[in-house]
């Protein structure tokens, strides 16, 4: 199993705060594109933040590529996990151009390699002519593609997508879904895609799992059930 999530529980700091996730488990094989669906407030985004290392779990553990990255005892910093993430509002650095945004994660590489990789990513997302533009100078769809290219550029082991299509209009969504699927297939990356829109997940993912809201009295025993992609 490439990604193993085992009995994961998390609540935001503060006395008496309810569990956002409790006893969550999930396994993802290498190269799989798994969609996570479920209603709002069920902890889908929190699950991604825990995998990325942006939050620390109180219980359970996360294993990526055989390495324990988070458990109750220790938590590896996000920068040490080699996990790429595309945020809901993209998080493109507004003071950097599209090219600088994409090259940002390539700082370990030398200048030549960095330039080549950046050019390749720009070509992949068909945005070479927009490389010198700032995020506020490009459209929402282009911002989404730039964010995806930035996350893919450092060759992460795992890619996390947190509702990356939610800010796009319906026509653009259809176009971007197809592009994303093509990009994912091309890069053969293991990927976890969170969305409340099943159409998004079905278009991009190979398998969909659902976080379901349990009965109120059993809220602390939130479970997830796997469900095969109808496609």
């Amino acid at each position: 199993m490439f990604l193993e999530i085992d009995d994961l529980s998390f609540a935001y700091p503060g006395k008496g705060r309810p569990w956002v996730l409790e006893g969550c488990g999930l396994g993802v094989e290498a190269g799989e594109r798994v969609g996570v669906s479920g209603p709002s407030g069920q902890g889908k985004s929190t699950l991604l933040r825990l995998i990325a290392g942006l939050e620390r779990p109180q219980k359970g553990r996360i294993v990526i590529d055989g390495k324990v990255v988070a458990s109750a005892e220790h938590c590896l910093a996000p920068e040490a996990r080699q996990v790429g993430m595309v945020f809901q509002d993209y998080g493109l650095f507004p003071h950097m151009t599209v090219a600088q945004n994409i090259a940002y994660g390539l700082w370990r590489q030398n200048k030549k390699a960095r330039r080549e990789r950046m050019a390749a990513m720009l070509e992949l997302i068909r945005m070479t002519e927009f490389s010198a533009r700032y995020p506020y100078e490009i459209s929402g769809g282009q911002q989404q593609r730039a964010a995806l290219a930035r996350a893919l550029a450092p060759n992460p082991k795992l890619l996390l997508l947190d509702e990356p299509l939610s800010n796009l209009d319906a026509a653009l969504k259809t176009e971007i879904r197809a592009e994303m699927r093509a990009l994912m297939e091309q890069s053969r990356l293991t990927c976890l895609f969170v969305s409340h829109d099943l159409d998004d997940l079905q278009a991009v993912c190979t398998r969909i799992v659902q976080i379901r809201d349990p009965a109120p009295e059993a809220k602390s025993q939130k479970t997830e059930k796997n469900q095969e992609n109808p496609d």
């Binding site: 990325a52 290392g53 942006l54 910093a77 996000p78 920068e79 996990r81 080699q82 996990v83 790429g84 993430m85 945020f87 509002d89 998080g91 493109l92 650095f93 940002y104 994660g105 700082w107 370990r108 930035r150 996350a151 450092p154 996390l160």
Partner: peptide, 11 residues
């Protein structure tokens, strides 16, 4: 969000 994006990019 920008700081988090930067950290997931290895900084």
């Amino acid at each position: 969000v920008y700081a988090e994006a930067s950290r997931t990019l290895g900084r």
